[in-house]
Structures are given as structure tokens and as C-alpha cells.
Write a protein that binds this DNA or RNA. Structure first.
Length: 481
DNA sequence: ATGCATGAGGC
DNA sequence: CCTCATGCATC
């Protein structure tokens, strides 16, 4: 480090995502929280592998300082990177971010590397909008189009990230224009490069794979007590306290008799499952943006925008749900909001929820700008009076058995359901519901299974990869008895 | 984020 | 009995 203040963050060379990926940032912040006993992330409910993370300057600074021995130069004060996730913040700052081949991230505060006159001019023109300019190659290219949500005195602004096609961090200003040292033509034009408010496609959220089945024959630690989780409450009317593997051999042989034929679902099996494909599924099929009179593109964009704004305001899905229920009109739970943001719903549902969220967000933004929390976020759950059946927790053996059965037959007959219930020792209704839910989940899970291949590395086109891998529910006959 | 439950609407 | 939209509870 010398005259030109900058910071460098070591990133594993193998790291495919630049800089602090969300996971890294999360881990870091978690670690820092652990060590400092302070809440850095400030959001415990919604953090996870997907989505993006909004960090304030201090958080970014802490994260970065924590990573390396290098220090953040004092003047540096804004912005941060991601790997398809988020970035933010702090108006009135300029920085160039660069990753080199070794996977190092370099941030150069333009405010110290650019002629002051240029900055002053830009600040005037753009008001308080921060300027984020990314340079470098492939990694950064993949960021192009990523949006950054920036709280400004005027409210939340969305800025799109664009990348400069260059491999060197060297850039300079000439006549007030940013010029690549490699003299390669910069496109799009710098004007739009530097500042764009039009929301456009964000990079795909990363989502965690979830194996459809566990197929794990019980290790020794799974004794009868776990056949039905009672959550430490043995007094409630849990259905299966008595369900024990009295004779594990029976279970085992039973499972075997079901004759598992697939260890995993094959892609071909899936295609016809879709009665009500989710939005993500539809878009992957290509072209069509209008389904059932619903503009999917619009909904997808709104879903992303909604999530960004929610996070920017520091609200969890739960808080939004509570706030929603505190206002007039239809309310939706955290689950619903989660599914909406993930677009893990049918177009019909999305269309129904969207205006509700839209309206709420609008009001919330206004509140936010006034420096007060949106209505209702403080409200606490009213004790629901209805007695709900305690959630059944199937044993691993039972789940495995059911999964194997499901692979063979997604619609067991009434008689078969009874048989299964008897065999496993669960209520018949519970088994029936299990199959219902399994079928339903199957439809919504299709898109999750295809991110296994190249969610991050390839996919330069930015399109969503396709490769569902689930069985065809429609094969089996529906039968009642 | 997701598994099981509920209830509406429908054959 | 099924699908579908949703939610509570739990992972």
C-alpha cells in the first residue's frame, strides 16, 4: 500500500465468486459477532445461503479487516461486493473494485484517486448517488446487471452494476470520462454505465440444494424415542409415543419389499408433473412471460425488488408478515413471503399476493424515509386460539419407507395408505397427508434440483439453468377407496 | 427455509 | 379423496 490507498482482501483462488460471497460474509459476520458479542448482521431470521446481504459500511469494513491482515484505508467508506449478492452503501463515495487472477479483491476509493473536480462535479450531477464501478474479467462480468439498493435521503434507490471489460484495475479519467487502460471500447456508454435506475435482471439467487430423500438407514443413535419427535413435550397428545422399532427387522424387510427402483429421480420423470408450475419453472421453459394472464417477468422483478427493499430497511420476513397482518386487507405469513420472494408459488398466487406486498412496501418506504418503522412491525403474534394438531415428525425409517413408496407410486390407493399407516404405525390420515404434501412439494421442488450444475460458474447468458429431476406424479393412478 | 396441517373447492 | 393455497411449527 502506498500513496494510493486501497485495500486487498485475500480470497481463495478456488473461490468462484468474487470477494466476499454471501456465505463468506455471513460466516465472517457470525464469527465477528461471536467474538465481539455484538450483533453485526442484525438479522437472524432471514439469513441464509440465498438472497443477498446488506451491509453497512462499518460491517463491510469489519468483515474485510477481519479477513485479511490488510487494513482498510481510512478514507474508504462505501460500497461492497458480493458474489451475486449484495452490496452497498454509503452515499457520496466512489470506489473501483477489482479482482485479479489470484482472486484478490481490490477496492480503490475513487475519492482519493480521482481529481477532486471530477468528483465534485459528479456529486453535483448525481446528487448523493454512490458510484460503483466494477472492473476486471469474468467474475465481475457475472455481476453485471446486479442491482444495488441504496438508501438515500430521498428514499431507496436502485442502481444497476455494470462492468468494465478489462483485466487490469487500471482506469483513469480523461476529460471527466472513465477510460480503460487497455483502451478497449467500453460498453455500454459510460453515462449509463455509471448510473442506471432501471431495475433489470438480477443475478440468480443461490439456493441450497435439498436432497429429496435422505435414504439413510438409521444409525444407532436413532432409537424409538426419535420415531416421533415430541419436542420435549411428552404430555401432549402426540400420536406416536408408542411407536417404536420393536422389531427393526420388520421395518427393514418392509422397506426392501417396496423395492426401490430409483436412487434418484431422473429428469425425464418430471416433465409432466406440472399442473401448476411455479413461476421459476415457467420462466425456465423459455419465452413466455404471460401465463394465465399474469406477467411473470413483472412479478419476478417485483419479487427481487421487494426483497431488496425489505432487507435494506432491515426487516425480516417475519416482521413484514406481522406488519401485514396489522394492516387492513389480506395478510400473509412469513412463509408466504418467503415463498413469494423465492417465487416458489404459482403465478396465480403471486398475482394475488403481489399487490398486497406492493401496497405495503409503498407505505413502509414512506415510513422508512420518515425514520420510523413501518406500521405493525413491532406487533407480536396474537395467540392463536385454534388447536392445531401437533406436527408429526416421521422417523427416518418411516420417511425412507415413504419415499421409496412414493417413487413407485405417488398416488397410493386408500387401501394402500391404510396398509402403509399400519405398517409404520402412524395414523392413516397422517400418511395420506404426507403423500398429498409430497406431491405438492414435488411440483414446487423441481427448480431446486437443477441448480446443482453450474449455478455460479458458467451460465454467462444469465439465464436460469434447466434440469429438473423428479418423478412424474401423473404416472400413478389416482384412486380412492 | 421447509415439513406437516388445515380448509376450500372440486370431481 | 384430490389439488392448491397457506400457515404454524420446526428444522
Amino acid at each position: 500500500m502506498d500513496a494510493l490507498p486501497h485495500m486487498t482482501v485475500d480470497i481463495e483462488a478456488s473461490q468462484q465468486q468474487i470477494a466476499l460471497s454471501f456465505q463468506q460474509a455471513s460466516n465472517l459476520m457470525q464469527t465477528m459477532e461471536d467474538q465481539s458479542h455484538s450483533n453485526i448482521s442484525g438479522n437472524t431470521n432471514d439469513k441464509g445461503p440465498s438472497g443477498f446481504q446488506v451491509m453497512n459500511t462499518q460491517q463491510v469494513s469489519q468483515a474485510i479487516q477481519f479477513v485479511g491482515q490488510n487494513h482498510l484505508s481510512q478514507g474508504w467508506n462505501g460500497l461492497c461486493i458480493q458474489g451475486g449478492q449484495i452490496i452497498q452503501q454509503q452515499p457520496q463515495q466512489f470506489a473501483i473494485v477489482h479482482t485479479n487472477a489470484a482472486g484478490q479483491l481490490t477496492c480503490v476509493p475513487l475519492i482519493q484517486s480521482l481529481p477532486i473536480s471530477t468528483i465534485a462535479q459528479s456529486q453535483q450531477e448525481q446528487s448523493v448517488m454512490p458510484q460503483v464501478i466494477l472492473t476486471s474479467g469474468n467474475y465481475m462480468q457475472s455481476l453485471s446487471g446486479t442491482q444495488v439498493l441504496i438508501p438515500t435521503p430521498q428514499g431507496l434507490a436502485v442502481q444497476q452494476l455494470l462492468t468494465l471489460p478489462m483485466t487490469s484495475p487500471m482506469v483513469s479519467f480523461q476529460n471527466g470520462q472513465l477510460v480503460s487502460a487497455q483502451a478497449s471500447p467500453v460498453q455500454p456508454p459510460l453515462g449509463s454505465l455509471i448510473y442506471s435506475t432501471q431495475p433489470q435482471a438480477l443475478c440468480q439467487e443461490t439456493q441450497q440444494e435439498q436432497p429429496i430423500e435422505t435414504n439413510q438407514l438409521m444409525p444407532s443413535n436413532n432409537d424409538g424415542s426419535t420415531m416421533c419427535s415430541t419436542q420435549g413435550n411428552s404430555s401432549s397428545n402426540v400420536t406416536h409415543n408408542n411407536l417404536k422399532v420393536e422389531n427393526p427387522d420388520i421395518i427393514a424387510s418392509t422397506v426392501a419389499s417396496v423395492t426401490p427402483i430409483f436412487s434418484t429421480f431422473t429428469p425425464e420423470m418430471v416433465q409432466e408433473v406440472q399442473d401448476q408450475p411455479t413461476i421459476n419453472e415457467i420462466s425456465r421453459e423459455g419465452n413466455t412471460h404471460i401465463v394465465d394472464g399474469v406477467d411473470l417477468k413483472e412479478i419476478k422483478e417485483f419479487a427481487k425488488e421487494f426483497k431488496m427493499k425489505r432487507l435494506a430497511m432491515g426487516l425480516t420476513q417475519t416482521q413484514v408478515g406481522l406488519a401485514l397482518s396489522a394492516t387492513a386487507g389480506p395478510a400473509y405469513s412469513q412463509s408466504a413471503i418467503c415463498r413469494f420472494e423465492k417465487l416458489d408459488i404459482t403465478p396465480k398466487s403471486a398475482q394475488k399476493i403481489k399487490p398486497v406486498l406492493e401496497k405495503w412496501m409503498k407505505e413502509a418506504e414512506e415510513s422508512y424515509q420518515l425514520g420510523r418503522p413501518p406500521n405493525g412491525v413491532h406487533i407480536h403474534s396474537p395467540e392463536h386460539t385454534k388447536k392445531r394438531k401437533k406436527r408429526t415428525s416421521f422417523s427416518n425409517q418411516a420417511v425412507e419407507y415413504l419415499n421409496e413408496y412414493f417413487k413407485k407410486k405417488t398416488h397410493p390407493t386408500g387401501t394402500e395408505i391404510s396398509g402403509i399407516a399400519h405398517q409404520l404405525g402412524y395414523d392413516r390420515e397422517v400418511i395420506r397427508i404426507w403423500f398429498c404434501n409430497k406431491r405438492q412439494a414435488l411440483k414446487n421442488a423441481v427448480r431446486l434440483t437443477n441448480k446443482i450444475q453450474a449455478p455460479r460458474s458458467g451460465n454467462p447468458s444469465g439465464t436460469i439453468p434447466i434440469a429438473p429431476a423428479l418423478p412424474d406424479v401423473s404416472i400413478s393412478t389416482v384412486n380412492a377407496s
